[in-house]
């Protein structure tokens, strides 16, 4: 059994075409080498002119045609299955952005690793927040572009429990090769348990938000830690002080920085207001020496989220 329901069928077509190709290539090459030795001018001092042979030429037009039409048909049958979406599939939204993947389950639960039950069809609905990305799972033999403004989708069934590499296959900028994630396939019962507990946590959180008007739950560094991963912040801002695309989060809070505002340098302190502004309108004040690369996060990161994130940043000394 393959990792997904398409792994084996794609491998089979590939091996079939590979076998035919190798046979033809070896045949052509051996013939070429044989002719060169057999008809070397030392063995064959005088050439014989053969301007052509219609029968032969028809044969080697028709036979390759039949072979490649066979390839096409074989591929077409399998491709039709890939694009025939089952009605009972679980719907997952996958969002690509520079440079991480975000998974959204039917009940709104969001994760940065995609946990899936084995044996159940899954439809992946792709969207992109910035440039084109491509959702690629080599073990499943599947990929599909995530195109901004154009909804795309693909489907599969995980057939074997395990952890599978997810990569971005469409070039998307500096950290393209780090836009990695995992799909974890688990038995249905185990998945149900995980899904219920993860969802419960989210519900509790949402309930907490609703109550917030009455009794504020207060910013939580734990939630902030989860949010910076989920919202993709850590793709550009490291937690350990190393330089990625943007300034590291480590020791950021309270630091004095030189920023560029409207082309002029200014000294600021990275306080709560500055961090809020940097999330909602990043290009307003760019830290000197860094590119204005971050997209505005209005409508993506909520005010509550920002409180949690600030609480978390304060802990990163």
């Amino acid at each position: 059994m393959g990792a997904s329901n398409f792994t084996n069928s794609v491998d089979n077509i590939f091996l079939f075409i590979l076998a035919v190709s190798v046979a033809l290539l070896v045949g052509i090459t051996i013939t070429m080498i044989y002719f060169i030795i057999r008809y070397n001018h030392k063995r064959n001092p005088r050439a014989t002119d053969i301007p052509g042979n219609v029968t032969l030429e028809v044969v080697w037009t028709v036979i390759p045609l039949l072979i490649v039409m066979g390839f096409f048909y074989y591929g077409y049958i399998d491709y039709k299955q890939m694009r025939d979406f089952p009605d009972d599939a679980m719907q997952i939204k996958v969002t690509g952005r520079m440079w991480s993947w975000l998974y959204t389950y039917p009940n709104g639960l969001q994760t940065d690793t995609l946990y899936l039950p084995v044996g159940k069809p899954v439809t992946v609905n792709l969207e992109s927040m910035d440039v084109i990305h491509s959702f690629y799972i080599p073990a499943f033999r599947l990929k599909m572009d995530a195109v901004p403004g154009v909804p795309t989708k693909m489907w599969f069934t995980v057939e074997k429990p395990g952890s599978y590499q997810v990569l971005c296959a469409e070039y998307c900028g500096d950290r393209h090769s780090y836009m990695l994630s995992k799909i974890v396939g688990m038995p249905q019962a185990e998945f149900d348990k995980w899904y219920a507990s993860a969802s419960a946590e989210i519900e509790a959180q949402q309930a907490g938000t609703e109550e917030a008007g009455a009794a504020p739950a207060g910013p939580s560094p734990e939630k902030g830690a989860r949010l910076v991963k989920l919202k993709g912040c850590v793709a550009c801002h490291s937690l350990d002080g190393s330089r990625l695309v943007g300034p590291s989060f480590k020791g950021l809070f309270g630091k004095t920085e030189t920023v560029i505002v409207n082309g002029k340098e200014e000294q600021i302190t990275a306080d709560e207001d500055y961090i809020r502004q940097s999330i909602l309108e990043p290009s307003a004040a760019i830290v000197k020496g860094y590119p204005p690369a971050m997209p505005p996060q209005r409508n993506i990161v909520t005010d509550d989220d920002i409180e949690h994130i600030i609480a978390y940043l304060k802990t990163l000394k």
């Binding site: 033809l24 096409f72 491709y79 491509s134 296959a169």
Partner: peptide
């Protein structure tokens, strides 16, 4: 050149086959 181009041609046929292309596109 004929030998190397033939390898290029055969791998081209693999990529023209839809389900194989889905896997190896952009690799």
């Amino acid at each position: 050149s004929i030998f190397l181009f033939s390898i290029g041609g055969f791998t081209g046929l693999m990529q023209a086959t839809l389900p194989i292309n889905v896997h190896i596109h952009d690799t």
